[in-house]
């Protein structure tokens, strides 16, 4: 199968999305934001050094700026827009708001996605595991203190709910 870039299909948040007339060099981040109406993932470094563009691809948190969009066919992509099933905030989103983990909010969608990925794979992370898991997500406003609190709180809430 050799799709050229005249048209290709991506599976994003459970939906099939068609991309037409794209330039080959477009990153998944660009296509999500500028072609698919999903600007939740943010671009801040274009080289995988800030994590703002984090999305889930086949159960892995990846930097969408480093994924060539046209090669992401036949993968399952979820973005921050796809986290909530019923329009309500997820436990992680709720914790971010309640603990003051959000200031300018530019890093927030990437962090929220990364933390979901962490808690889905490691529901009771230690403090150092939390720090390592989000060490690829740069925040310039908060100094991370409230973000750590938010992750701890979300993990605790999830534990409580699953009891």
């Amino acid at each position: 199968m050799t799709p050229n870039t005249e048209v290709y299909q991506l599976n994003v948040n459970g939906k099939k999305c068609e991309v037409r007339d794209a330039w080959i060099g477009e990153s998944l981040l660009y296509v999500l934001r500028e072609r698919l109406g999903l600007p939740g993932a943010k671009g801040a470094c274009e080289q995988g050094e800030c994590g703002s563009c984090t999305v889930i691809m086949d159960d892995q948190a990846v930097c969408s700026c480093l994924v060539m969009a046209a090669t992401a066919i036949d993968t399952e992509i979820s973005t921050v827009e796809g986290l909530s099933v019923d329009g309500k905030l997820t436990d992680v989103q709720d914790a971010f708001v309640n603990e003051g983990a959000v200031q300018c909010g530019f890093c927030t969608p990437g962090l929220v996605v990364a933390v979901h990925n962490l808690l889905d794979t490691s529901p009771t992370p230690t403090d150092i595991e939390i720090k390592e898991a989000i060490s690829g997500n740069i925040c310039r406003c908060t100094g991370y203190g409230r973000i750590f609190e938010a992750v701890r709180s979300a993990a605790a809430t999830r534990q409580e709910t699953n009891k």
Binding site: G37, L38, E81, L89, F96, V97, G100, P109
Partner: peptide, 23 residues
């Protein structure tokens, strides 16, 4: 009071429109 950001819910959901998000 420890009031919460009114834009927080939009920001955690990726719905808050940064100037780069405008189309």
């Amino acid at each position: 009071a420890p009031a919460l950001r009114p834009d927080g819910a939009d920001k955690v959901q990726g719905k808050f429109a940064f100037s780069s998000d405008i189309w």
